[in-house]
Design a protein around this nucleic acid. Structure first.
Lengths: 274, 274
DNA sequence: CGGGCGGTTGACTTTGGTCAAGGTACGTGG
DNA sequence: CCACGTACCTTGACCAAAGTCAACCGCCCG
């Protein structure tokens, strides 16, 4: 069973630089152009930082000076409750934005901890604002990035909405695979960079339940699981696991004349222009 | 038990306009200035729309032209799974932003349904961008608003992270009260605008469980519950319910020399400037 | 070689989802 | 004005799912 997983790590490593790399760095990917084009003298004001494994990039409660974009490595986003229980809100890898929350009130509501040696660009908000003024296309890029962060909330909700432990786990794997694909990595052979405990916290389960779910999905022929190496052998079955939920009434008491899009609708009436 | 709740509705109604209303409209609150000051001739390009009870402001999958800000009324944000199961992601009231997700890929990943007759301002993104260029202080306001939306994700995660049904319910009430307070309404006497079913969907529980939780919290002397009218009689107890989670090891294998803030740290090293 | 951590598995217990029934409030139509 | 239907909420009984406790294994690192 494990034979087919040999060399997974190195295979992924080589894939990392293959796709989605029209721009050399995560920074350029975010900006939407090469550094040479826009930066004065080809030197950007954005520093590249190294974060050692298991170390925080920033802490809950610390003041927000900058937003960060991951160049390489992997993080977990964690929020610690008053009682010391820590909940994993999200994971972030290459090209993901860190610390966008906390822009509102000036301090981070969550911590970012490196799960492996990582490199990130620090984007001081003052610089970001300057960029917004100077680079015409940047605003849209930036909005899009922020909006994508909001979309992550939906992903989390979707994860937690699943009823069974196996379904949640299936959704997690499914989502993880999708994100890997977005980064140009294999979406069939995955290397989970986080512990079962972290996954469990993220999914709102006991870590034993996560473990059981993995073995269950493996026995069902959906996955091959060898510790943190996972191969999706039956994507359709995984999809079926992930998307099934117990039945609910069609719910929306949608009026017969309900209209899609933004066509003219009687239930939505312009009253005034402030 | 119900005597103390008489007249709750009207009491809240009068409170609505008391606080947090330095600006006449939600629009001005978002902009951070009065319409007269910045709009040409005091006429803004933002339309005020009326949405009838139980009707959608926008539908899942519909294209995103605008973002909306709630002037009055109440919405639920809903995402419908492939299988037709609908999950309530969030609720939104006065001054809240709607439809910020979907900026990334140009279509709404969720629907917004009015729980009562509501009024919202429609902000076409093109106008928002123009505003960003023109009004100097607006960028920061806008970022802040977007960031706050991201923060909501954390709130949701926090809700779902609770283990017991009563705890989740307690967190929901606690959060609801906080948001009411932010709008200048009473944070002790609440009028829930959504059905038990909606709450249950939001919390990932069966609606029976929500019902049981309410009666349990009422029996414990924490709440007074009369259908959708809720009074928090013992805020401390509610807080205790809301913030307790089963014990977890302190978790963070925080290195002895871990530092708060952004002081100089050996584990975080500047490598280069792209 | 040994200790600790991460992962897996088993046995037991509690939680909460499901099914079912009953109650109340509201709106509609006779 | 009253009868009826419906939607929403509550409560009870039952059972499956998952949390807890505990033991065991393999691996890495000292």
């Amino acid at each position: 069973m494990n034979d087919s997983l040999h060399g997974l790590h190195t295979a992924q490593g080589s894939e990392t630089t293959s796709n989605n790399d029209r721009y050399a760095s995560a920074l350029e990917c975010l900006i939407g152009g090469s550094v040479a084009e826009w930066a004065p003298g080809g030197v950007s004001p954005f520093a590249l930082l190294r974060v050692a494994e298991h170390h925080p990039l920033f802490h809950e409660g610390s003041p927000t000076h900058s937003v960060h974009v991951v160049q390489a490595g992997f993080f977990k986003i964690v929020r610690t409750g008053e009682d010391g229980y820590e909940h994993v809100l999200d994971f972030a890898g290459r090209h993901d934005l860190l610390g966008c929350d906390g822009l509102a009130n000036g301090q981070h509501p969550s911590s970012a901890v490196a799960l492996e040696e990582s490199w990130v660009y620090a984007l001081p908000m003052a610089e970001v604002r300057r960029l917004t003024q100077r680079l015409p296309g940047f605003s849209a890029h930036w909005e899009s990035a922020m909006s994508a962060q909001i979309g992550r909330a939906g992903d989390l909700a979707w994860l937690m909405a699943a009823v069974g432990a196996e379904k949640r786990t299936a959704r997690f794997i499914s989502l993880y695979a999708r994100r890997m694909a977005e980064r140009g990595q294999s979406s069939r052979r995955l290397l989970l960079r986080m512990s079962r405990r972290d996954i469990a916290s993220h999914l709102g389960l006991a870590h034993e339940s996560v473990s059981r779910s993995f073995t269950l999905l493996a026995e069902a022929g959906v996955l091959l699981v060898d510790n943190r190496e996972v191969e999706i052998v039956d994507p359709d079955a995984l999809h079926r696991y992930a998307f099934s939920t117990r039945g609910y009434p069609p719910a929306v008491p949608r009026q017969p004349a309900a209209v899609t899009g933004e066509a003219r609708r009687p239930d939505l009436r312009v009253v005034a222009c402030a």
